[in-house]
Design a protein around this nucleic acid. Structure first.
Lengths: 150, 150
DNA sequence: TATAAATCCTACCACCGCGGTAGGAATAAG
DNA sequence: CTTATTCCTACCGCGGTGGTAGGATTTATA
């Protein structure tokens, strides 16, 4: 499992906020109820998104959260990277370019590096807007068996 | 982390066996020593490869393991899938097509399905032979900064 | 100004998979 | 019959995942 519930719920929250982004603040309890998720657990996740600058928050009554930018300005890669810490498929690939000491002679390293790039490339080109618009062609590519009806 | 040491070591073993495949059996202790890995831990991993039919084994003195087929007939996807159980990037994607009960209304599902396909596609096209030949162009694609020297 | 509704902060915890270790039984070559 | 090997079962510490609990702080509104 590359993406745990932390990252998945984070994306769910971002999508939820993007769907009803009318400029107002949305409370955490509303989101948790709509998405049927534990509010307390969501709290810790939304805190990461907030501190990372992806959200704006307002405390006190009628407070809540809203997107800091418009949906097409968030890549999925950015959201997942912030919450998960890393999206590397294996331990021996670090995100900051640090390498294993056996790197020079490791014959499997190019494979892992290639896999990492493929994943990053995919997640970087998809935006929050693609998700709320249901852009299946972009997300599923040639494998989308329903794209001809769109 | 999508691929744990179990899958990584499994691939290392397969690559090791592929590199010196002269038809004879190679002992586990030889592999462990060459790759500098715990022999006892490797034992449990190579057992999975053996039971899965990827290897042939011979017990007793001068026994060991060897590849059941030639290197170009193994996809990396096959090796990792067997040892890891699943390569799905998230919990809500099952490998046998089973779906979450919210699947019909889940707006993030196409993203995870697309990511899963991208990963599977990449790992399926690379073979054990590509790794021992060091086929960087195939593994690293456009990102290979050393491919022009080949 | 009191109250309610919300974010923010710190601490805690059960469970499970990962990454091994240990010891011995069965098998085959010499 | 000894030695080298695979094969099998059992065990275990550690850290991360997926939460829960409780309260402090901030803000809008009656």
């Amino acid at each position: 499992m590359m993406v745990s519930t932390k990252g998945r719920y984070a994306l769910t929250v971002m999508v939820d906020l993007a769907k009803l982004s009318d400029g107002g603040y949305v409370s955490l309890s509303d989101i948790a109820e709509r998405e049927n998720l534990s509010m307390k657990y969501l709290e810790s996740i939304i805190s990461i998104l907030n501190k990372g600058g992806l959200l704006q928050s307002l405390r006190g009554k009628n407070g809540g959260y809203k997107l800091a930018r418009s949906p097409e300005e968030y890549s999925i890669n950015e959201i997942l990277l912030l919450t998960e810490g890393t999206l590397a498929p294996v331990n021996c690939i670090m995100q900051d370019g640090v390498q294993c000491e056996k790197a020079a002679t490791c014959s499997t390293l190019p494979l892992w590096a290639g896999l990492d790039k493929v994943i990053e490339q995919y997640l970087s080109k998809i935006t929050l807007d693609d998700i709320i618009k249901g852009n299946r062609k972009k997300m599923l590519g040639d494998y989308c068996d329903q794209c001809d009806s769109e």
